[in-house]
Design a protein around this nucleic acid. Structure first.
Lengths: 144, 144
DNA sequence: GACAATTAAATCGTGCGCGATATAATTTGC
DNA sequence: GCAAATTATATCGCGCACGATTTAATTGTC
């Protein structure tokens, strides 16, 4: 039994609530997304593409903060599910551009209700949500 | 292209910064923990045990918000690494109690510097950190 | 005290995450 | 123009996460 450092106590760490909250929120999404055979990470990628279709794997990685070792298999699964196409870029053949299929676009409508549904379901204070989002974005900016 | 709902934009969602920040912080820990052959989740479990040795798998699950399907294999790996022992509880044989080995306790000293090291490394504003922690804990309490 | 219900871990299958490395295409330097 | 460096994906291996199910022990009910 060594002397206890204040920082070593779980309750004093920022990292644990971050980790726990992230998982809890993902769990909240999961049952809603499951109806469309989507995972949470696939949903993130869809949101990126709905806003900016045709991005390359690298560009999706920059927005999602995921690398090809996660994205390549994930995008292949989404291609299998006919949500998107993977197209070699003509002018730079190293690059693979991702284009949503009609089915991928359809999901944008199908899932439109999800965010509001979660807000209602949890009735988490909107003001606190905004504060939390701002603080998280500052942290991300610093770590990225 | 369907009408864009404000909530469907990645930038307006709370869930994404939460997910991204959590991964970024884990990445920050990873190289430091790797020196001791630990993963981030194993580190969480160690912190729980340093504070409360001898807890059952269920109790560790309550504190970490992880279930046996994650904890059982993780604890077995930690047992393999001789960080802890898994002991059948005499008075209730369904229960497995987890006791740290000397090597598991030793890590408490070895890793004592990590939290401060990360604080220095990122020089993230302490006041913001506290605010963020409070907001996250409120969110967790609501979702748990 | 037998038997149904409950509880604690373990097991199984799938999909991330990510460090490390490989492969192939493009760019740079000379 | 060609070899070296760089860049974009892909591949590999391992360890989470977690829903669903199984197994074994305990508790509750009559």
């Amino acid at each position: 039994m060594s002397p206890t450092n204040d920082h070593q106590i779980l309750e004093n760490q920022l990292c644990f609530p971050l980790y726990a909250a992230s998982r809890l929120v993902t769990r909240l999404y999961q049952p809603l997304l499951e109806q469309y055979n989507l995972t949470y990470t696939q949903y993130i990628v869809l949101m990126i593409l709905w806003q900016d279709d045709g991005l390359s794997v690298k560009q999706i990685g920059e927005k999602s903060l995921l690398n090809s070792n996660t994205l390549t298999p994930l995008l292949k699964r989404m291609q299998q599910a006919q949500l998107l196409e993977r197209i070699k870029n003509k002018s730079d053949e190293r690059q693979v551009d991702i284009k949503l299929t009609p089915k991928g676009w359809q999901l944008k409508q199908d899932l439109a209700c999800i965010p509001q549904q979660l807000i209602n379901q949890t009735d988490y204070d909107t003001e606190k949500g905004k504060q939390l989002k701002t603080l998280l974005e500052q942290l991300i900016a610093q770590l990225k």
